[in-house]
């Protein structure tokens, strides 16, 4: 049976953005990363309509994680106390396109580290690796408002992706990201209406829409992935329809979400297969699913999962 050729053309497209700045551009990155630019749905239309190749940001935690399950901690056990060694390993051995420094350690309920610590980690990682950075706060509004502006300043000129800002807490980080010329992550809790509202709010402060990446929140396989998928898909369709407030590339937090679920980490589960494989499979499957919804940057953790997803991207975006 012949396969009908269905061609649908759209008037809008996803913004194309470049992260990182080389020496010539005022930074110190050895390379930059360009994402976005899709003119059609994922795998729709001609090759020219496809987005730039999606990229993987491997998480580096600013303080050694204490609650990671054994199979996830194992590949990082020799570098967990050193963000610089961790970042180097992620880039050199695991092939990270970007490093995402996740500042869990500044959270008041965790290590409650101060801004000096966060700035040092940022400086050190910038010196240790040449890839562009994502700088991600702890999720505690008050502490993030104290610390993340300092982190932004420490990375000035490096054209990082910094976040996240929400409907209720966007002013300080938006202002500093604008001043330091970074890209910004707008964050909504699996709610497309709030996602659009946050973009309007930061845009009202004069932040360029073309320098925003959206984070719709992520649900892992079996734990709300369908909500994340359908919202991302809807954002892509809005972008293709010409909605300038929704034409941003998207980032997903697959590593953290995948390793929270019991299926990924429960060791004593006869019949579920070996726990060493289950977690990476859960993470890889979640990532690949969300790539099909149009994600442009995926935050990941386990090197085996990263390898599977990189292989998938290589096959489809080559």
């Amino acid at each position: 049976m012949p396969v009908p050729e269905i061609v649908e053309s759209f008037t809008g497209q996803v913004n194309r953005i470049t992260l990182g700045a080389t020496k010539e551009q005022g930074g110190s990155r050895s390379s930059t990363i360009t994402i976005g630019g899709a003119k059609n749905v994922v795998y729709g239309g001609s090759v020219d309509d496809a987005s730039e190749r999606p990229v993987i940001a491997i998480d580096v935690i600013d303080t050694a994680p204490e609650d990671w399950p054994e199979p996830l901690f194992e590949p990082y056990k020799d570098v967990a106390a050193s963000p610089t060694d961790w970042a180097k390993k992620a880039v050199d051995e695991f092939g990270a396109d970007l490093i995402c420094i996740k500042f869990d350690g500044i959270h008041p309920d965790k290590a409650d580290k101060d801004a000096a610590h966060a700035v040092k980690v940022t400086d050190d990682v910038l010196k240790a690796v040449g890839v562009p950075l994502v700088l991600w706060g702890s999720g505690n509004d008050e502490k993030d408002n104290q610390v993340m502006p300092k982190v932004s300043e420490a990375a000035k000129g490096e054209n990082c992706l910094i976040g996240t800002v929400t409907e209720d807490n966007y002013k300080s980080l938006t202002a500093i990201a604008l001043a330091d010329n970074h890209h910004l992550i707008t964050h909504a809790p699996l709610d497309i209406n709030i996602a659009k509202q946050v973009n309007i709010l930061v845009s009202d402060m004069g932040f360029p829409l073309e320098k925003i990446v959206t984070f719709q929140a992520t649900g892992a396989l079996g734990y709300g992935i369908e909500y994340a998928y359908s919202i991302q898909e809807r954002q892509r369709l809005a972008a293709l329809g010409g909605d300038k407030m929704m034409s941003m590339p998207m980032i997903c937090d697959v590593g953290y979400e995948s390793w929270r679920v019991k299926e990924a980490k429960l060791a004593d589960a006869p019949g579920w297969g070996p726990v060493e494989d289950r977690g990476p499979m859960w993470e890889a499957t979640t990532a690949i699913c969300l790539l099909q919804a149009g994600a442009d940057i995926i935050r990941m953790r386990h090197p085996k999962a990263v390898a599977v997803v990189k292989n998938f991207i290589d096959k489809l975006w080559s």
């Binding site: 497309i192 209406n193 709030i194 659009k196 509202q197 309007i200 709010l201 845009s203 009202d204 809807r234 809005a238 010409g242 909605d243 300038k244 407030m245 929704m246």
Partner: peptide, 13 residues
């Protein structure tokens, strides 16, 4: 797509 600032958003698109 609805947002609380939908009137403003429409003018921006």
């Amino acid at each position: 797509i609805y947002s609380d600032s939908f009137l403003k958003a429409y003018k921006g698109t």
